[in-house]
Design a binder for these strands. Sequence first.
DNA 1: GACAAATGATACTAATATGGTATCATTATA
DNA 2: TATAATGATACCATATTAGTATCATTTGTC
Lengths: 135, 135
Amino acid sequence: MKLITRETDYAMRALVYMARPKNSLVSVAELIKELKFPRPFLRKILQTLKRRRVLKSHKGKRGGFLLARPPEKIFLVDLIGIFQGPIELDECLFKKKLCPDVNVCLLRKKLQKIEAEVVAQLRSISIGSLRDERN
Amino acid sequence: MKLITRETDYAMRALVYMARPKNSLVSVAELIKELKFPRPFLRKILQTLKRRRVLKSHKGKRGGFLLARPPEKIFLVDLIGIFQGPIELDECLFKKKLCPDVNVCLLRKKLQKIEAEVVAQLRSISIGSLRDERN
DNA sequence: GACAAATGATACTAATATGGTATCATTATA
DNA sequence: TATAATGATACCATATTAGTATCATTTGTC
């Protein structure tokens, strides 16, 4: 059981790499040189981040990507939301039956509580905090 | 993104149903009558629970399954471990490279902390607590 | 203006995980 | 000894994850 997929992981690392004081354009070429991810896969990921307004881009020669907002405002929970869908730990598996079982509803409440805590934790991890705390 | 799969969910509900004061044998036939799960799938699940020592079984006519230990000692985290593998939120995706990136290691530490809290939460949910708290 | 270097869009493919079925062997009880 | 149960195992269908391939579009530089 894992919480983050490879897509989310790659996205996070690329973003940490791009989180420089200057926030200048970074090309895919530069990123894969540093991070060794599969080129087309990383491209797809970055394009998704662009579409989801986490990155901005410039096309054409000397183009590339840059953060659309300060790294302190990009959170792990955002990336999970983008690449793995919203966090719904309590998703009711019998949707049409409106939770026929009292026990199940009780379970849902408990899972919701856990979810709230996990989300709070994930929200506390930003690209900025990952970049800054290295020492 | 979801935390528990249908297998885990079915297992949990079957166990809650079986958690009766008497702890007598319950057959698959009885379970599916009550719970409406696909018969062969539930059979597979129960056999797994048997192999993993959560259930005991009796073969032959009038056979069935029963809890191998008190419902208060069967935890959601156990079932997730059985059906979805151990919880390893911080699984290092570059296993052979021994975490070359400082940032990644930092991330792992943060994920480990979250993991510890999630596990603690999941450990607090037992079959017994689900059965008892209905009212 | 032509070329080259970059992203945009989109469709396809491979591998793995999930959610099941199907079948036959074995055992215990009435 | 028939039957009702589980044990073991192999198989199948679908969804998700991980990744590839290709062509179109844009833009800086000569």
